[in-house]
Design a protein around this nucleic acid. Structure first.
Length: 170
DNA sequence: TCCATGCGCGGCC
DNA sequence: GGCCGCGCAGTGG
């Protein structure tokens, strides 16, 4: 299947759109992977990410998110048992920063955050990867951390200072 | 090929 | 009835 690298909003699914399960979320096109939290591959950039409480080091401050990269977890316990590497989805997010690509953010009810929905999953708009770095996580292993900042889109107050260009087709 | 931030069912409180 | 924990399925990057 030919997969277009669609960054930015998905027509028909505005910010605030809610979904019951990952399958529905996948069908919408907002976030195709049915399990993985990062949608994207290495050098192509990441289309979207999901916050669902999977990684303890993630911090959600609403318009700013410290998102944890994937990898290094024990598949059974979900605990960090190894260092994360800058590959796969982590590398994709790094490319978002490098090329200024927006990433869709979806919050799930499992995320321990006041900004998380009470049930299911909710599309919370576009963020940009402001920075990323490696640090030691709570479990004592290196993790990759990405600072996501919400892209504020002015409704239609003329073409005033839109600090971040709304992502059209790339 | 391998990896990934689910989901449902059953048991216990 | 609701919460929690275990076990398994299965698609896309």
């Amino acid at each position: 299947m030919r997969v277009e690298r669609t960054f930015g909003h998905i027509p028909g699914y505005p910010e605030g759109s809610c979904f019951g399960t990952r399958a529905e979320l996948s069908h919408s096109g907002l976030h195709r992977p049915r399990i993985a939290g990062i949608s994207g591959r290495g050098h192509c950039g990441a289309n979207s990410v999901v916050l669902a409480g999977g990684y303890e080091d993630t911090e959600d401050c609403g318009d700013e998110i410290l998102y944890t990269g994937h990898g290094g977890r024990d598949p059974e316990t979900g605990c960090q048992v190894a260092h994360q590497t800058l590959t796969r989805g982590n590398l994709a997010l790094a490319c978002n920063k490098r090329y200024g690509l927006p990433v869709r953010v979806i919050r799930g009810a499992r995320e321990p955050s006041p900004y998380a929905p009470t049930a299911g999953y909710r599309y919370d708009g576009l963020y940009r990867v402001d920075a990323y770095w490696r640090e030691v996580g709570k479990a004592g292993f290196f993790i990759w951390r990405f600072r996501l900042c919400k892209i504020v889109e002015l409704p239609h107050q003329g073409s005033t200072t839109a600090t971040l260009s709304p992502p059209h087709k790339v």
